[in-house]
């Protein structure tokens, strides 16, 4: 029997409680001073609903885009050999490493009407910065590594023999992908997309610069929480925050189930 269980377990639980659990409990307890009707009114106010719709809708679109391109990037990085591959592979983590505020002002500068990309998009009549589309671009940027890093190890460890068997039995490359490879990577692919979605829903720094923050149009939920806080509407901020937190919990539960599924295969 190794020593140190009591002290390490005790310290972990104490630290976890002080830093995470008690503060989160304070968040969940706070809204109820408004009464049940008050909480419901605070969470279903049109401006709040519009913000929730934008946060969850844009996050959903971004995670679908990331699921597709993330799978493609992971495939190319695992299966193909080409010069500079290691550097590209390292660059995939850039959205993790780059502080969100820096990503936010950089993306705004790129996609603003006079920016490197924005000027050409403007010619095509597409406005990205200061619109909901800008929110999607920012959330797509920060979400890509989740999908790539979830799929990559599974793709690398997938047994080549199975693909060879499929080919020997006369399967086309396309059939092999959909019937052999895709089912094997499906759980980790979905996990990656879910992680990207969870991160995107709560994202703040990379979004607020490019979003334009127009109430009812391009105002994300985290920003609305800050606005309520600045108006000293603590209970209202806590109500919206709790709603987001509960939705994140449900999401986390789903991700855990996906991961358990991935492990069981």
């Amino acid at each position: 029997m190794l020593p140190g269980f009591g002290i390490t377990f005790g310290f972990s639980v104490l630290y976890l409680s002080l830093i995470i659990l008690i503060p989160l409990a304070a968040l969940l307890a706070r809204p109820w001073e408004l009464g049940i009707d008050g909480v419901w009114a605070a969470v279903t106010a049109p401006r709040v609903l519009a913000a929730l719709k934008l946060s969850f809708g844009a996050a959903l679109i971004a995670s679908v885009i990331n699921a597709i391109f993330g799978l493609l990037v992971a495939w190319v990085l695992v299966r193909y050999e080409f010069p500079g591959k290691r550097i590209l592979d390292a660059l995939v983590d850039l959205p993790f490493a780059l502080p969100t505020a820096v990503a936010g002002i950089a993306l705004t500068s790129l996609y603003a009407p006079n920016g490197w990309f924005g000027q050409y998009l403007a010619l095509a009549g597409i406005k990205v910065a200061y619109t909901p589309l800008g929110v999607v671009v920012a959330l797509t940027f920060i979400g890509l590594p989740f999908v790539v890093r979830s799929v990559q190890p599974v793709l690398a460890e997938a047994e080549k023999e199975q693909e060879e068997v499929a080919a020997t039995l006369g399967a086309s490359r396309r059939q092999t992908f959909w019937k052999v490879i895709f089912p094997a990577i499906l759980p980790s692919w979905l996990t990656g997309a879910a992680l990207a979605f969870a991160r995107a829903v709560g994202e703040y720094g990379s979004v607020i610069f490019i979003a334009g923050n127009l109430p009812m149009v391009s105002e994300i939920t985290p920003l609305l929480i800050i606005i309520k806080l600045e108006q000293f509407d603590y209970a209202g901020a806590a109500a919206v925050g709790s709603a987001m937190l509960v939705l994140s919990f449900i999401l986390l539960l789903g991700i855990n189930m996906l991961q358990a599924w991935a492990r069981s295969r």
């Binding site: 991160r199 709560g202 994202e203 703040y204 720094g205 985290p222 929480i225 925050g241 986390l252």
Partner: peptide, 9 residues
């Protein structure tokens, strides 16, 4: 858990 909580929260 903190990874799934919005930074603002």
């Amino acid at each position: 858990l903190p990874f799934s909580v919005s930074p603002v929260i």
